[in-house]
Design a binder for these strands. Sequence first.
DNA 1: GCTTGACTTAAAGTTAACTCTAAAGATTAT
DNA 2: ATAATCTTTAGAGTTAACTTTAAGTCAAGC
Lengths: 145, 145
Amino acid sequence: MGYSIGQAAQMTGLTAHTLRYYEKEGLLPFVKKSGSGLRVFSDSDIGWLQMIECLKGVGMPLKGIKQYIDWFIEGDSTLEKRLQMFKEQKASLEAQMAQLQKHMNKINYKINLYSKAVEKGSLALVQNDPELLKEKERVYGNEQH
Amino acid sequence: MGYSIGQAAQMTGLTAHTLRYYEKEGLLPFVKKSGSGLRVFSDSDIGWLQMIECLKGVGMPLKGIKQYIDWFIEGDSTLEKRLQMFKEQKASLEAQMAQLQKHMNKINYKINLYSKAVEKGSLALVQNDPELLKEKERVYGNEQH
DNA sequence: GCTTGACTTAAAGTTAACTCTAAAGATTAT
DNA sequence: ATAATCTTTAGAGTTAACTTTAAGTCAAGC
């Protein structure tokens, strides 16, 4: 029900250093201190850290995450802003996933190409395989490498 | 068939500064210079830049990309290494996409939650909606925020 | 022939997000 | 109660990937 900074670090995969850094940046305004000044993380604090990891993972900078936390603290008057923020993150996430899928197609092409090249012992011998050229045109525009 | 650094910048969405920086870092070993010392980018160089963008986009650091280019220059003796590299990038990409999907689930939950909160004008009034709690448990482990 | 804008180099500066250091106080195991 | 370990603070250092600066060269338009 109350975790030390070391325990919180282990639970989240972050380091104690990073947790102090996050606190300094205003990302952990709910973490309490014990009588002797030690941080005490609650389950809710761990939940916040997991939300932070999520937002960080979709590419939000720490400043943007802090904005969300500040809105949360401000209360129900910021509900629309928070909803808007999540909608924007969803759109950004969809764009990212589409981009990654394109990269995946290119990389699959390369794996195909290099698999055949390794078989033959030569890249040049394989580059003009008509089957590969067709796939290449489908995946890329019209590149090399 | 030959592009100035400014044209190459426009074609790739990078800045001329960045292209010079990439060259300095060894990522553009094939770019030629004109008699007066100006860079001349070929279509193949543009293709390399697109491959660089792809690898950067899947999270490879410039050093790793340079390694690939160095292997390419070294020739067919490095075919296996290059194949291996692309296989690793594919695995990393798959992990990333799975992670992003998890984040997407959380964010969809938040959009759902905040949509209802905005409707009611209160987050607290909505937090305990049994329908939402069920979805929350499905999406998260057991968090707040 | 002069201005404007693109280009050259080398090197210093910027930003985000940590990461580490030092010196001291607190907690836990034996 | 004492050694080993954990935690505290403020502040300096690190890393990747640019980004800007300074000081100058080159080419095109009027």
